[in-house]
C-alpha cells in the first residue's frame, strides 16, 4: 500500500444558477478588472489516502465524490491523484 495525496475540485455544474460566482464577478469588475466573466466559486477538498495503486486511489476518490463530496444535481467534480509520498 502507498499513501497518495488526493485533491478533489468541486465546482457548480455548468449552466446552474451560481449567484455567488455572479456576485464575485461584479465585485472584481468594480475593482477595475475589466473583461472578467464566467466566475465560479467552488471548493477544494484535500485528503491523504492509502491505496494499492494510483488507479485504486482514483477509483475510491470518485466514489467519495459520488456519495458525499459533490452533489451530482448541482456540482461537477474532478479528482487529481498527486505524488505517492514515501513508502
Amino acid at each position: 500500500m502507498s499513501d497518495f495525496q488526493v485533491e478533489v475540485r468541486v465546482v457548480p455544474r455548468e449552466g446552474i444558477l451560481d449567484p455567488q460566482g455572479k456576485a464575485v464577478a461584479g465585485a472584481l469588475k468594480s475593482l477595475g478588472f475589466a473583461g472578467v466573466d464566467h466566475v465560479h466559486v467552488g471548493r477544494l477538498v484535500t485528503l491523504s489516502l492509502s491505496a494499492a495503486s494510483p488507479e485504486e486511489a482514483q477509483h475510491a476518490a470518485v466514489a467519495m465524490c459520488r456519495q458525499l463530496l459533490a452533489n451530482p444535481v448541482t456540482e461537477d467534480f474532478d479528482v487529481r491523484i498527486l505524488e505517492a509520498a514515501g513508502s
Binding site: I16, L17, P19, Q20, A23, N71, V73, T74
Partner: peptide, 17 residues
C-alpha cells in the same frame, strides 16, 4: 431529504445571497 435522494433536485444559495 434532497441530499438523501428521497426527493429529487437540490436547494442552493438564495439568488440574493
Amino acid at each position: 431529504l434532497c441530499e438523501a435522494g428521497m426527493l429529487p433536485g437540490a436547494l442552493i444559495r438564495n439568488r440574493s445571497l
